[in-house]
Design a protein around this nucleic acid. Structure first.
Length: 514
DNA sequence: TCTGTCACGTC
DNA sequence: AGACGTGACAG
């Protein structure tokens, strides 16, 4: 079983075009052994295989250093995250969801046509989840066609009320796909629910508010149908560039070439793509030579080198079975001078601000925080959920062994809420309830007693209906009259406070205890 | 560095 | 037809 598990993981690795991290198999083996001896009877046969759609396109972006624009109102990713899935139990129900986690601890800047580290990362933002709109659905459904997460939106608005995934600009991120096995009847109320996580390292990106690398801009324009308006004319030699209603003179390819050659130093700043909208043929030969985003030295793997100090795993595939998950969240929102604190019991909103170690750290370096740095609130939120077994989280010598990488089977253990594996942290999932559990004053601030069945299960917008946003606008809000512009900086404290208070009021369970 | 607005495009 | 997704730009 262990053998086949690792083999399976390796196969997936090959499918996804990523080599297995050397440390992975060790952890996998250790974990699998431990898991099997613990709860062998809970292993199940389904063995989801996930392949990334448009991997070639992702690779093209990844080579250049993918950038994703984030806006206040939310921006889709391009390329869209789509996967093909095989190996699910046709009849079982699954929930598919994504999250996007910090890939490292750095803030970046684009300097001299290169991404460079520019300091320490901002505190991690709330880890929101995007639940696929078809969820929950049968394995047969998920395997029938491409599974698209293209409606997922990214925002830099820390107060975002729409349920978009909140990111910090100029930081590096790694999207992750989670497949959660659910009961027939109860999306998030399943017993013995398992999930597995897939990471495609070629989908990592740096978030920006405007593109930094014009090669990325061009690649987006060339490939994103919505950006067709910025493409050159069909005629490869002549083009018209339209900027704000004005038509600029037709410019021949030769002119472009000469202009570019004669003014290379100014190209990046002044020949913005819109002025001389680059036809691929032109750009590939001329425009591209000014922007070398990353050092090309050394690496034999063109993919391994795109971001400095990347801690990306090559591929991760790990499964868990977890016993229970609490959820609730608080969001501060500010609209038109009205300051409110929104509380969305819909998405996870774990305040990472107070973690003593960044979430991306590998278990080998972050072991201490796994056990020691859990805040009391976190202990409250997760305490009592996994009272059973969590062997493997901390070894006798204090080092963590990874329960997160189980390879080929659904895991039989709950992941530690903040567990990180090969550079990517584990974060708990969050259920999203259409009807939040009513506020009940006087409930003591004690976690174990709070674990109960959700009154309603996951809200997901219907398959064809579009949308798919997790949030149904049913916020509770409290006035916050003395918010100032510093709201973002104080948000952490506010949230921490309200979490403490509200945990006592919301009794929500992601997956109930068995 | 970020935001709102725009023209132009898709869906 | 109209809502929505784009990058460019100005500020």
């Amino acid at each position: 079983s262990v053998k086949s598990a690792i083999k399976g993981a390796c196969n997936r690795s090959a499918v996804n075009g990523a080599g297995l991290h050397p440390a992975l198999s060790h952890h996998q083996a250790a974990h699998l052994r431990g898991m099997k001896s613990l709860e062998p009877e809970e292993e199940v046969d389904d063995d989801p295989k996930v392949t990334l759609e448009a991997k070639d396109l992702w690779d093209q972006f990844h080579k250049l250093g993918t950038e994703m624009v984030i806006t206040k109102s939310g921006r889709r990713m391009f390329p869209p995250f789509k996967v093909r899935i095989n190996g699910l139990d046709k009849k079982a129900k699954y929930i598919l969801l994504m999250d996007i986690v910090a890939a490292d601890d750095c803030r970046y800047k684009f300097h001299n046509s290169r991404w460079m580290v520019a300091g320490k990362a901002e505190p991690a933002m709330p880890g929101r989840l995007y639940v696929h709109p078809d969820s929950p659905a049968t394995g047969a459904h998920w395997m029938r066609q491409l599974v698209s997460f293209q409606k997922l939106k990214l925002t830099n608005n820390h107060l975002d009320p729409f349920g978009h995934i909140i990111l910090n600009s100029m930081h590096k991120y790694q999207p992750r796909l989670h497949i959660v096995k659910a009961d027939e009847n109860n999306a998030f109320g399943s017993k013995n629910t398992a999930y597995c996580t897939h990471v495609f390292h070629e989908t990592s990106f740096i978030s920006v508010t405007s593109y930094q690398n014009h090669k990325i801009t061009q690649l987006k324009i060339e490939n994103n149908p919505f950006a067709k308006g910025f493409r050159g004319s069909e005629d490869g030699d002549l083009r018209v560039s339209r900027i704000q209603g004005k038509e600029y003179p037709i410019i021949s390819k030769n002119m472009v070439r000469q202009k570019i050659i004669s003014s290379q130093n100014h190209l990046t700043g002044k020949f913005r793509a819109g002025v001389l909208t680059g036809h691929p043929q032109v750009l590939s030969s001329y425009q591209y030579d000014t922007g070398t985003p990353f050092s090309k030295s050394g690496s034999q793997d063109p993919m391994s080198n795109n971001f400095p100090q990347s801690r990306d795993p090559s591929l991760m595939y790990h499964c868990f079975k977890h016993r229970g998950m609490l959820l609730l969240s608080a969001h501060a929102c500010s609209h038109n001078h009205v300051k409110k604190l929104y509380i969305h019991p819909f998405y996870e909103d774990t305040p990472h601000y107070f973690r003593s170690a960044p979430s991306y750290e590998s278990p080998l370096v972050s072991h201490s925080y796994c056990t020691e740095a859990m805040s009391s609130r976190e202990a409250c939120m997760y305490g009592g959920i996994d009272t059973e077994s969590r062997p493997g989280v901390v070894d006798a010598d204090g080092l963590t062994s990874s329960p997160s990488v189980s390879g080929n089977m659904w895991a039989a253990r709950q992941p530690y809420p903040h567990y990180s594996v090969e550079g990517i942290s584990y974060q708990p999932f969050t259920a999203h309830f259409t009807n939040p559990t009513p506020i009940t004053p006087g409930v003591p601030h004690q976690a174990p007693s709070m674990v109960s069945r959700p009154q309603k299960t996951l809200h997901v917008q219907g398959g064809g209906g579009g949308g798919g946003v997790i949030l149904q606008s049913q916020e509770y809000f409290l006035d916050f009259t003395h918010y100032s512009k510093r709201v973002l900086k104080t948000l952490a404290f506010i949230k921490q406070y309200f979490f403490s208070v509200l945990t006592a009021y919301f009794k929500c369970v992601f997956i109930t205890l068995t």
